[in-house]
């Protein structure tokens, strides 16, 4: 069988599960959950250093950027300028070219502002960034992002942190069918089966944060997601059976007594 390789902008990943590092109880739990998830790429945010209290632990003490791929994001940015500023700083910090762009448009739904997102993608690609883009599940805009040079298309399943799961499977499927770059469902996944469904549909990967971090037992949930993503991917590769409207017996009818 052909080897199933997952590549984003020439970066080869072992796991199709990408994990966020926010919302955990503490860094110890973050590190343990990520280890159990099997993810080799994690998203991180860029924020001001606490100048006053430097005794507070920091993320890099628990997650070694040399051992796990840091994917800097622009969470909390509402304009193209803010997003560009954040990612340019991220690049300066450690030489990261592979980044996740998200430009938000509404505080209540954290829905992506696609006008600003398209504008930012264009600039970032020109500056040599490899951009994975959080976006709406609009088919035409997803295509536009790809044409602009996005390294991955990341449509939302439902609003960030909502846990509502895949709300528009048809659109996600259409985006998967038309895209030549990886499609990674980002935001809104609530439970392991949501991730399996996304992967069965042919998504190249999923990005999970809240569903793991906000579980009663994040470590166990990280394991659940690891298995869910593997199961979904294998199912997609295996090709599911055809649906029938009527029953077809599983045991032979010949030789019935």
């Amino acid at each position: 069988m052909k080897k199933d390789i997952f590549k984003i902008a020439n970066k080869r990943l072992k796991s199709r599960l990408i994990v966020g590092t926010g919302k955990y109880k503490n860094f110890k739990q973050t590190a343990q959950a990520i280890k159990e998830s099997g993810a080799d790429m994690v998203t991180v945010a860029v924020r001001r250093v606490n100048i006053i209290d430097k005794k507070k632990p920091i993320l890099t003490d628990y997650l070694n950027p040399k051992k796990i791929i840091y994917l800097p994001n622009t969470a909390g940015c509402f304009t193209s300028e803010e997003a560009l500023r954040t990612l340019r700083l991220a690049r300066e910090m450690g030489g990261w070219k592979l980044v996740k762009l998200e430009v938000l448009g509404d505080k209540k739904t954290l829905y992506p502002n696609m006008i600003e997102t398209l504008k930012s993608t264009k600039t970032l690609v020109k500056e040599g960034f490899k951009v994975m883009v959080y976006c709406t599940d609009d088919l035409l805009l997803a295509k536009k992002l790809e044409d602009l040079g996005a390294s991955a298309i990341m449509p939302l399943a439902s609003p960030i942190g909502s846990g509502l799961g895949l709300q528009n499977k048809v659109n996600i499927s259409l985006i998967i069918k038309q895209s030549k770059v990886p499609v990674i469902v980002d935001a809104g996944i609530g439970t392991a089966s949501d991730a399996t469904i996304a992967m069965e549909m042919g998504c190249d990967g999923v990005l999970i944060n809240s569903a793991i971090a906000k579980a009663k037992d994040p470590i166990k949930m990280a394991q659940a997601f690891k298995n869910a993503v593997i199961a979904g991917r294998n199912c997609y590769l295996a090709g599911r059976m055809k649906k029938n409207y009527f029953a077809i017996p599983s045991s032979p009818t010949d030789g019935l007594i």
């Binding site: 966020g20 590092t21 924020r47 250093v49 890099t60 942190g161």
Partner: peptide
Amino acid sequence: LEVVHFIGGG
């Protein structure tokens, strides 16, 4: 002057 670093985020 702005001094930034990476923190946990989704």
